[in-house]
């Protein structure tokens, strides 16, 4: 049993489709009204069938009032760390603190390269992400005197002006599966964000994810509880329970409460573009999971 005691969050993973133009924004509005905590969007800038994710997030933020938004996850190789820092901070200020930073080292390198960015090896990509986090935090650290100074192998930010600072203590959540990236998260990030469908061994793989993060956090003198454990999930609401996350809302609640209590996962982000599913998830599943987990927590 692992539980980091995080407040539970429930979100949606919305396809950033460019056609119909406003579909993704409208789904974010549905999630906002339904009372979910998060609306998140994948980022594949090499695919023109999708909106530019940051533009979409900003536009959706302007059309919603309560929900928090983030990339899930933004493709670092096609986005500058300093720009990520400033744009997230700007939007966080405009929204009164509703923005988090979801970041990934890059997947689909063919697409990334096709757009003009440099292909990195997996090892390089981890180092680049580590440097990017340093740049981002340095830009956010607006009160510290002197300019940003990061001399990395991949990012050189020398003499860069600091600021703006986000309106709230913004989290950096990183999409990750492999040990090196997980250790980086333990040292430097605020959350880990894998997708259930990529966990080859199923939800049980989360135990290994936690192990890597927790060990690395302790080694670098951080409390493992500073790293939120998130999970992208897929599921189907059906009348009778068939399998994991395929059944009625009560079964979903038990499935998710199980993950929360077993692995300390505290953020469940459901991939769906169906308004009714978003509403059912918000109204039936989220409160029930909260209740089940609260009953088990000391």
């Amino acid at each position: 049993m692992t539980d980091y005691g995080h407040e539970l969050l429930f979100g949606t993973f919305i396809t950033p489709t460019a056609q119909p133009v406003h579909q993704a924004v409208e789904l974010a509005v549905v999630a906002d009204r339904a009372g979910l905590d998060l609306a998140t969007f994948q980022d594949h800038p090499y695919l023109p069938k999708f909106h530019d994710t940051w533009t979409l997030i900003t536009y959706a933020a302007a059309r919603t009032s309560r929900i928090r938004l983030s990339g899930n996850v933004l493709s670092l190789p096609l986005r500058q760390p300093a720009v990520l820092a400033r744009s997230h901070a700007s939007l966080d200020r405009l929204t009164g603190g509703r923005i988090e930073l979801g970041l990934g080292a890059g997947a689909f390198w063919d697409g990334i390269e096709a757009m003009g960015a440099r292909r990195l090896t997996p090892g390089q990509a981890v180092s680049a992400l580590g440097e990017a986090i340093r740049v981002i935090r340095a830009v956010w650290d607006a009160d510290r005197p002197g300019p940003v100074s990061v001399h990395g192998e991949f990012y050189q930010a020398e003499g860069l002006k600091r600021g703006p600072a986000p309106a709230h203590d913004m989290s950096i959540w990183v999409g990750a599966y492999k040990p090196r990236m997980l250790r980086l998260i333990g040292r430097a990030a605020d959350g880990v964000l894998p997708s259930l469908s990529y966990l080859e061994g199923g939800p049980g793989d989360y135990a290994t994810i936690n192990e890597h993060i927790d060990d690395s956090a302790r080694e670098s003198g951080r409390d493992p509880a500073r790293v939120r454990r998130l999970l992208n999930i897929n599921g189907t609401f059906s009348q009778f329970g068939r399998s994991f996350l395929n059944g009625p809302a009560e079964q979903w609640a038990e499935d998710l409460a199980g993950l929360a209590l077993e692995h300390g996962i505290s953020t469940f982000i459901l991939a769906t573009d169906d308004p009714a599913t978003i509403e059912e998830y918000a109204a039936e599943v989220a409160p029930a999971v909260r209740e089940l987990v609260a009953a088990e927590r000391p």
């Binding site: 744009s87 700007s90 703006p164």
Partner: peptide, 10 residues
């Protein structure tokens, strides 16, 4: 020193 594109989109 915020981001112009973000403000414009907002």
């Amino acid at each position: 020193d915020g981001d112009d594109w973000t403000l414009l989109t907002w």
